[in-house]
Computed example of a mutant assay.
Amino acid sequence: MTPDLVAHRVPTRLGALSVRVGGEGIPTVFWHGMFIDSTTWQPVLELLDAPRRVILVDGPGHGLSAPLPRVSSIEESAAVALEVLDALGIAEPVDWVGNAWGGHVGLRLAADHPERVRSLVAVGAPTEPVTPAARRKLRLLLAIGTVIGLTGPARSAVLGTQLTDAGRRDPAVMAVVSAALDRPSRRSMLRAVRSFILGRTELTSALPSISCPTLLVVTDDRDDWTPADAGAAVAALPDGRVELVSGARTLVPLERPAELAALIASFWSGLAGSRVNPLRRRSASR
């Protein structure tokens, strides 16, 4: 699925966002994770063959979007997502695919505005706040980044949270990630870290309110979002399932695009054209 994409500049409360739209069919939003941008979805899009109207979003302060003007929140990101859909004239429910931050935005949007989300795929998106240990590391990263930006040790720390050792040795993966890291301004990225990582509130309590079919994708190389954690989260969803992808950390769309595309395609095929579908809940420890 590689439709011709048309670039849009969508004004929102968090600055103008770069949004690329193309194709025909069910509107499907792809929202990336922190530090990177919508280019990380390209390997997955090339492997999906279902006809779709693709909406690729560069989140606030990332990619080609305007710098983040102030400290914000996941909740406000979800409000911005609605502004994007409204600006594009998309009133029907969308299929949402989000990686990390994008998964958090999708979970919040589906909980608060169930009429706008037909289905949800959240890839590597923990539902609990950042752990105290990770918070300490992030505060150190912020201190370093304030002085020198995301270079040297700060950049290495970011890459370590995003990619496995194998991913960091892959020139193709590193080319995409490095280019994405270089696009935002230093101030914008530091505000984004404060907003969408350090300031992330828990989403576990929102899970029972998410009525749409939901797929949680978890990896085997993260301490903060394990298969057991995802299994507990999916048990709280009215209509959820969980799948494990091995050999990836946070950036599953880049490290394991074929596996992720296959999971997404299978999940979509089970929707059978309906907004609410009784997908069988499955344990993460399969």
Results as ranks from 00 to 15, higher is better:
L254T: 10
L251G: 01
S266G: 14
G247A: 04
A272Y: 03
P238R: 08
D229A: 15
A248N: 00
D223P: 13
V234S: 07
A230I: 05
P253F: 07
A235G: 12
A262T: 14
I264R: 02
A230N: 02
N277T: 15
A248P: 04
A248R: 00
L251N: 08
R275W: 03
E259M: 02
P253A: 06
L244I: 12
A235E: 15
N277M: 12
A248C: 02
D223Q: 15
P253Y: 07
E259N: 07
F267C: 03
P257N: 08
A228V: 09
A262S: 14
A262P: 11
S246N: 12
L263I: 09
I264Q: 01
R222P: 11
V245I: 15
A262I: 03
L271M: 03
A230S: 01
E259T: 13
P253H: 07
S246A: 15
R249W: 00
A248L: 01
D229N: 14
A258P: 03
W268D: 15
F267L: 01
T226A: 00
G240W: 04
L260D: 09
P238F: 10
R241A: 15
T250M: 13
L263H: 10
L237G: 05
V242D: 06
E255S: 13
L260A: 10
A235K: 15
V276M: 07
A232F: 05
P253G: 08
E243S: 04
P278G: 11
T250F: 08
E259R: 11
A248S: 02
W268C: 13
V245Y: 13
L251K: 07
A258E: 04
W268G: 14
L237A: 02
D224Q: 00
S269C: 09
P238V: 05
G231I: 12
S274F: 12
D223N: 14
E243K: 01
A232K: 10
A272F: 01
R241N: 06
R222M: 12
R256A: 14
E255Y: 13
